[in-house]
Each structure stands twice: as C-alpha cells, then as structure tokens.
Design a protein around this nucleic acid. Sequence first.
DNA 1: TAGGATGGCTACCCGCGAGTATGATGCATG
DNA 2: CATGCATCATACTCGCGGGTAGCCATCCTA
Lengths: 237, 237
Amino acid sequence: MSQEGSPCGPAAARAPLRESPWRASRERLRDRQVKREAVIRAAAHAFNRKGYHNTSLDDIAAALEVSKPTVYYYVSNKEQLLFECFVAGIEPIRAAFREARLMKAPARERLKAVLRHYGRAVASEFGWCMVRAEDQDLAPAMSGHIKALKSEIDQGIRRLLREGMQDGSIHPCDPKMTAFALAGALNWIAHWYRDSHSLSGAEIAEAFISVFESGLTPRQSAESAGAPRHVSARLAR
Amino acid sequence: MSQEGSPCGPAAARAPLRESPWRASRERLRDRQVKREAVIRAAAHAFNRKGYHNTSLDDIAAALEVSKPTVYYYVSNKEQLLFECFVAGIEPIRAAFREARLMKAPARERLKAVLRHYGRAVASEFGWCMVRAEDQDLAPAMSGHIKALKSEIDQGIRRLLREGMQDGSIHPCDPKMTAFALAGALNWIAHWYRDSHSLSGAEIAEAFISVFESGLTPRQSAESAGAPRHVSARLAR
DNA sequence: TAGGATGGCTACCCGCGAGTATGATGCATG
DNA sequence: CATGCATCATACTCGCGGGTAGCCATCCTA
C-alpha cells in the first residue's frame, strides 16, 4: 500500500502465460483496482487534512489530476469513499485480533499486541477516516456496517480484558469502561497525529501501552529510577 | 446553566430599586442574554445529535420554535455558534485547573481532581462541541482561539504530571504522551456517551481514573480481590 | 477495419443551506 | 400621539458541491 507498484498476488502469479486471451483483460482489471485504491488513498489524505465535509469530490479529483466523473467511475458516491477508507483503516485491527487469538500467551500480552496494531492503524493514513467515520454522515445501511465493525473491535478488547482477569495477568476492572478508556486514548491519536509526525505510530503505541500497563501510581517494585518517599502508595480517601 | 432561571449577579442585585429609568432596559438586556444562551444550548443539542455539518440553522431555529433570522439576531453566524458551545464546554475544565492550583495535595490528587471535572465536562451537553470543534471548520481567528485553549489544557495536564513525578506521587513517564493518553480517553467519552446515558459523567470519570491510576498489571499490594498467582508482575520483555 | 468495451472529459443540473433585505409588531419614552 | 428601538417573520439571494448527461479517445477483439 506504500506504493502503487504492489501487484496483487494471483494476477502477478499467472502473468507468465502470455498466450491466454484473457491476459489483457485481467491486466486491465488489475489496473482498475490499482487506480481505485489510489482514489481511496487520495480521499483519505484529503479527509485527513480538511475533514470529510470540507472535502469536495472536486478536491479529490484535483489531487489525482483527473476530473470528477473519473472519480465517480471508480466509486459510486462520496459516502462509499468514506466507507472504503474506514474499512481500510479498521482491517489491520481485525487482523491483529485474529493473530492474537493464535498466540499462546497471557491475555495481557495478547491485548498489548492488539493495542500495538491498533495504535499503528490509527496513526496510519486511514486512521482519521476510521476513527471519524460518523454514523450521522452515512446512510443507515453503511452506518450499520460501521457500527458492527466498531462493536466487534470493542467486544474483542473487552473479551481480552476478561480473559486477562481470569488468567491473572490483568488487574480486576470493569471491562466495558476500561475498553472505552483504552480505545479512546488510541483513537484520539488521529486528532493530533496529523501535523506532528515526530514519532512513528509504533512508538506512540508503545508509549501508550506502557502508561496503560503500569498506571500513574508509582510502584515500589521500582523498575525505573524515581524515589517515591513521603507518598508511598495511595494517599487520600 | 441548568435552567433558564439563573439571573446573572449584578442585574439581580440591583433589581430592588425599581425607580431607575433603566430598569426596563436592563431587564430586557437580561432577557436577551437568557435567550442567547438558549440559542447556544439548542445548537449544542443539535450538534450533539446530528453533528455540526449536518445541522442547519433552520434546524436550530425550528427546535426553538422561532425562525432563522431570530437565531441570527442573537449570534452572528454558525461558526460563532460552535465557538460559543466550545467555550461553554471548556470553561469548567479551566476552572478545575484554577481550583486545583489552590489545593495543597500531591500532584496526583490534583490531577485526579482535574480529570474528574474533565470527564464531567466531556459528558456534559457541551462536551461534544468542545471535543469536536475542528480547526478545519472555523476561520483562522477562531481556530487560533480554540487551539490556544486546547493547548492550555494540554499543558496543564503535562505540568501536573511533571509535578507528580517530582513529588513522587506519579510514576516516571513521558508527560507529553501520557497527557495525550489521558485526554484522549476522556475526550472520547463524547463519542459514545450520547445515547447510552446509563452512567453519569462523574461515574465515568471515576471509572477511568481508577484505570489510569493503577493500570492493567495486577499489583501484589492487593487492594481488591483477585489472585494474581503464576503471573506476578511483569511478564515478557 | 468495423465495432464494442473501457476510460475519461466538458458542461451541466439542482437542492440545500448560509446569510440577508424588508417590513411588521410591540413596547417604552417624550 | 409620535418617535424610536427591539424583536421577529416572510421571502428572498446565491454559491457550493454532489451527482449526471452526453460526448470523445483509445485499445482490444473479430
């Protein structure tokens, strides 16, 4: 996805047999897919910079140096464009959950692995669209899809939290609220990560995870410097 | 702000002297202020439900059972309406910082106090507007104001974190990233708190704070139930 | 080389919504 | 009663932007 020169697997594999009469048409199909993705990426960038409502399809077309009907040739309407960006943003997170399910490790480690991917996804070029795809902006059908996908993520986090509380790797907590807190913190990355790209998505995720993991209260099992003296563990009330 | 019957101080104080020829005009002025606030609250509610861009001024006028020019009689334009909602949302947080500055307690407690107010503010009727007031949607002037106010909050949190690390009440951490994580989690409340009002803003803030405070990793200084056994402190890497 | 499929452009339609011109009503003052 | 100010409604302008109609170019296939 970093450059357009990434041919999707099957088409590239069958490229050698040039005698097929369908070669050209398959190539065109692949070209079309590449262009379609370019449109979606251009939309994502525009939404990033100016927001969904402040981006016109003329803007997107201009960024691609084509005209508006060309954009409409690849996507049916603006709403679908947002939806595609959303899916592109959220898919890596779903993949992270599938991956985590195969890990044989305590739930806290599996959760951390998911959150790492989550953070990277939010900091990616589709992060903004994923995070900010509002049900208010979309017709009921798409809104339903998006809600379902978001809920899937949310439930996945809650499940990992519950599993962690069972296997003892996670401190007892309210899974719902905790999942909201974790996801919220990570989602919010999309709001401030546009201009200041001083850190990579992975680095941000790592920093956040370390906060989530140990919390604000100092631990006497000092693993860093710090000298909590007159304030030891829990102070008031 | 909870009801319209809250007369601002000075006007109410001078109400007894009815002989003043300016009484009527002052009363009208107060009425005007009350109505203006009603307009702003109506706007906030509409923005809550449908978002800024999907709310027309006709909608707001209809909600107030007046016509559009009436709305324009109290505010100069839509953008200013959003700005007023933003300020109404963020002001309690600024107040919380001022209040915290007077507290004589470890920084972690002062921070918690601020975060409690923060959470309540985000869950308030202006929370959505405060959180979602985009610089992209506003002219440079207002955008600058908003950015400054947001930055003020951010810097305030960072300062409390640093102070906490100095007085030993807060675990060593990167103040910038940690502030982002805290504010992000709380900001995100505005996204899911619209429909499901099962918890109050204060309750949510409390739940979040307990997550931030102790983190996910179980502590052997068990203050809750739970039996972290085979996984004691820090597991891998 | 004809004919169809693919890909693209110019030029348009049209509705929505921000903002306004104009004037009516009512109330206080003189 | 006349004047003036405050308040609000009807009815409008107008530009932006989503979406489309219709036409042209190219290239593959027969």
